[in-house]
Amino acid sequence: MTSYGGYARTGYGTQGGEDGGGFMSASQQGSQGGERKSNKDDALRPVTIKQLVDCKESYKDAELSIDGVPVTHVTLVGQVRSVTPATINNTYRLDDGTGIVEIKQWIDAENPDKSPRFAPDTYLRVFGHLRTFNGKLSVNASRMRPIEDFNEVNYHLLEATYVHLSLTKGAAAGGGQQQGGDGDGMFVDSGYGAGDARAVQARLAPCSRNAQAIFKFLLNAAGDGQHISQVSSFTGLSNKDIMSAAEELLNEGLVYTTEDDETWAILEM
């Protein structure tokens, strides 16, 4: 995903490779014949530690949720305050200025070099899965790496805030990301002139509600393209629905693929 700069060009690991963090794209999952249980299994959510500390658990289905959206996979940043080593795992207390959370790094006995231990005061990016045990929340890290540029910390906090506002204030103001079709308001501050806006709106009119919701998200998103994982996080749509809706937008000449077939950007008029 080019919009996240060098540190996350792989779309937070959803496109595989060494930066994968253990997360697979929809095409990779499909090739293994597995079915996704729900969209929460696909979306990787950038979060602050305070959001994790405050996240709610639905006792009906035991799903952890942030801003009312079920979440399992998260990425966060922070500074190591302490490390507690053990035979099978290392436990880190990570602090991002909003709170402190425990990170469990499980050690591969056959490949211990794949689980390097990080010293206190090191800034880390963590990819992991939320877990609760006896009422205590922690993150099981699938991948951890040191942060080399502090701008990544600032960017992450801003991105987590952006996602939070999109899911809360955006839904309250616009009736939800999936409503779509909100007329001229979609094009406010978009950079389109009046004529271009009308032309785009005419092309968008026959598209499905899902396609309109995705177009709205792409129109307001910063950067050179948005990966399917981010589209899913913001719209709440499944990867299957996103791919189908994206095909509509491609056929209408409204978007184009960037670095791969699961990353899209608005096609300027």
Rank of each mutant, 00 (worst) to 15 (best):
T2N: 08
S3V: 10
G5N: 06
Y7G: 09
R9D: 08
T10K: 02
T14L: 10
Q15D: 07
G17I: 02
E18G: 06
D19E: 09
G30H: 14
S31H: 09
E35A: 13
K37G: 08
S38Q: 13
K40C: 03
D42H: 07
A43W: 04
R45A: 10
P46V: 08
V47L: 03
K50H: 13
K50P: 10
L52A: 05
V53Q: 13
C55E: 11
D61F: 05
I66V: 04
D67E: 12
G68F: 04
V69H: 07
V69C: 07
V71K: 07
T72I: 15
V77N: 05
V77R: 10
G78D: 06
G78F: 09
Q79T: 01
V80Y: 00
V80W: 13
V83H: 07
T84Y: 10
P85A: 01
I88E: 15
N89S: 14
R93Y: 11
R93T: 14
L94W: 01
D96R: 03
G97T: 03
T98Q: 04
I100Y: 08
I100Q: 02
I100L: 02
V101P: 04
Q105C: 00
I107E: 04
A109L: 15
N111R: 07
N111K: 01
S115D: 13
P116G: 00
F118E: 10
A119S: 00
D121N: 15
V126S: 06
F127S: 15
F127A: 15
L130P: 07
L130G: 13
T132W: 10
G135Y: 08
K136F: 08
V139F: 04
N140G: 12
R143V: 02
R145L: 04
P146T: 02
P146M: 01
I147S: 02
D149R: 11
N151P: 00
V153M: 07
H156F: 06
A160F: 12
K169N: 11
A171V: 11
A173Q: 14
Q178N: 11
G180P: 01
D182V: 07
G185D: 06
G185A: 06
D189Y: 06
G191L: 08
Y192W: 07
G193E: 02
A194V: 08
G195L: 12
D196M: 01
A202S: 14
A202N: 13
L204W: 01
C207S: 14
S208V: 08
R209I: 06
A211C: 04
A211E: 08
A213W: 00
F215Y: 12
F215A: 00
K216I: 02
K216Q: 13
L219K: 11
A221M: 14
A221Q: 11
G225Q: 11
Q226V: 15
I228H: 09
Q230V: 13
V231P: 14
S232H: 09
T235E: 09
S238F: 00
K240L: 04
I242K: 05
A245G: 06
E252H: 04
G253R: 03
Y256F: 03
T258R: 00
T258D: 01
E259S: 11
D260Q: 10
E262H: 05
T263A: 03
I266G: 03
E268L: 11
E268H: 09
